[in-house]
Design a protein around this nucleic acid. Structure first.
Lengths: 348, 348
DNA sequence: CTTCGGTGATCCCTTCCACCG
DNA sequence: GCGGTGGAAGGGATCACCGAA
């Protein structure tokens, strides 16, 4: 059961370096009053012995593990995945460790269980990468001693959050379409339980309203290309049955929805962008090479992850507890958007 | 520095339950000789106090943290990301924790540093999700006391590995094209330092050779759509200058390369699949809705992650040290493949 | 005043050993 | 001798002191 040989401890280093284990501890923790040459001797001994500080012992004493937990979506979503990576890198740069728990964010129980799992590990803080209502609810209900940050969600009263200004992203996307001359724009919104989806929808509606235009919004059930495709098929069917008109532009809440939508449009022999313009959101993998290359909104996900770690550290150390807002997204204009078709032309 | 209040320990539970802390420990560790009613009393007390076992103390004593480290690619690659998720879920199902370190796998130093980082945390084992030569070299050079598994790499002599049979995947993909009647097939291979890329190339070549056909292989610099696009542009240019012929089918080493290739073909007004068939690999997000929907190869990445954890556990406990091979991939036929065009037709 | 050694206490748990019916 | 329980001994590091060069 306990076959592992005993690794070198601080006392071993001490005797190897000919100093007391006190001094070794001082070297490890960068205490001031250590002579340079003794420090060298100690470091050298640590090197020779392959000493590695036992973090279990340290954590036991200090009541700090130096581990942050991250709850992330187990489904392969572009934004959250990149956020996760950036969180990890920011944490590691600060000498912290990141423990992962992946879940289906739609199930509050799973999120709660994941948080429990991380707390069992004694994490110093948790980031929940999810602007999903269920996940947020799970966070609110959890009574943890450690700080919890929700990444990508607008700040709540009691939760710490770092949010990207999704409304702003939606606004630039919508403005872009309006500037091209579009008046009849449809927004294929993401799944409503996602805060991001709602924020983008708000940004869309407000921009349309500000221009005195009537916004049309369609809500998707998830973020997948498949759902975008089905939404597109249904739209085409409704237009064919004259129950609806074909918008001149569509703003999809993410790239995959846009991809599925473009697929449905292509099936109906509609040309993007000449018949219909399409804008996505995320600048996900490959979107620059969709047919046609997708105009989309890129986010500073690295920045988001970095700020999560900063906030968590500040909260842990009691330095600060205010939420912060990351920078705004920016528009990437590619080939899926163009001025509107002649409105007189009847398609389908 | 140490502001956190002291959480309940087993002694607190013990006095609350009116037993010795010994008995509490027995309850926690499911020892046999505990009377049912005392066990109940203890569990009840734990519940009331909100007791959480201090894993640092446990780890200190047992020399086991119950944490596995995962080194994964920081770039947003489809396969590795899904593998990471499945590893985490398999680990959590077994009550283990997963600590993450993301790196650029092409830099051996980074992989080495990531492994060091995880070892600093006292992980019980490490999975390196990378069939990249540099990463594998880093693993070979690292002299760790804990087992290291390379996910997705063919088993080496000294490393543990769980591999997916990439050759088999490439073979079914190639066979599919040959069965459709193609004779002139080009393989757009992934970056050569990746074991997966080479394995797929081997599967391709062998299948071609077995059919008495001459294989053509083009090596990409990375797995991105951009590189696929550039490769496609170059291919088209060479064909236009009559320095090469246009293959009737292209087997790309992943979906993004295929996407970029299809983009380049579309630019050249070539129709997929009527002029050129295209097959991808991964069944990545959205590939079912590319234009046209991509025929591709799906892998059992969940199985891969699960086996990694199994292997790591076995290695940690000294049960087994043999490498295992996960199941074979399967072909998904969609709309990007068709019988070859009339060879007499001259395109471009 | 700086640099270092020494001691003792502590963190919380697991494991070995001993006890009692 | 066995089921149920308790006591003591670490495990490796941090921290607070005191003392001594």
């Amino acid at each position: 059961m306990n076959a592992r040989p005993r690794p070198p401890a601080i006392t071993d280093v001490a005797s190897a370096a000919g100093v007391s284990y006190q001094t070794v501890s001082r070297v490890i923790n960068d205490h001031p009053n250590v002579a340079t040459d003794t420090r060298e001797r100690v470091l050298d001994a640590m090197q020779r012995l392959g000493y590695r500080r036992n973090i279990a012992a340290r954590a036991l004493k200090t009541r700090r593990t130096g581990v942050f937990g991250v709850v992330a979506s187990g489904s392969h979503l572009f934004g959250p995945t990149r956020t996760l990576v950036s969180i990890e890198q920011a944490a590691r740069a600060k000498g912290l460790f990141v423990s992962l728990a992946t879940v289906d964010l739609q199930h509050k129980d799973e999120v709660t269980a994941a948080i429990e799992h991380l707390l069992d590990q004694g994490v110093d803080g948790i980031v929940v990468v999810a602007s999903h209502d269920e996940a947020a609810a799970a966070v609110l209900e959890s009574t943890t001693q450690v700080p919890v940050v929700v990444a990508g969600r607008a700040a709540g009263e009691h939760t710490l959050a770092v949010a990207i200004d999704q409304e702003a992203g939606a606004k630039v996307a919508t403005r872009h379409l309006l500037d091209l001359g579009h008046r009849d724009v449809l927004h294929l919104a993401g799944p409503a339980p996602w805060v991001d989806a709602r924020a983008r929808a708000v940004g869309f509606r407000e921009t349309m309203a500000a221009a005195g235009l009537a916004p049309r919004t369609l809500w998707a059930d998830d973020w997948s290309a498949e759902v975008g495709y089905l939404a597109g098929q249904e739209l085409v069917a409704r237009v064919r049955r004259r129950r609806s008109t074909l918008p001149t532009a569509i703003f999809a809440a993410n790239d995959l929805l846009a991809l599925g939508m473009m697929h449905a449009l292509a099936d109906a022999r509609l040309n993007v962008p000449h018949d219909v313009s399409v804008v996505g959101y995320d600048d996900g993998d490959g979107s620059a090479h969709f047919v046609p290359p997708l105009t989309t909104v890129a986010q500073e996900l690295e920045e988001l992850g970095y700020r999560c770690v900063e906030l968590l550290l500040a909260a842990r150390d009691g330095t600060a507890t205010s939420s912060s807002v990351a920078v705004s997204p920016r528009l990437l204009v590619r080939e899926s958007t163009a001025p509107p078709r002649d409105p007189a032309r009847v398609l389908l």
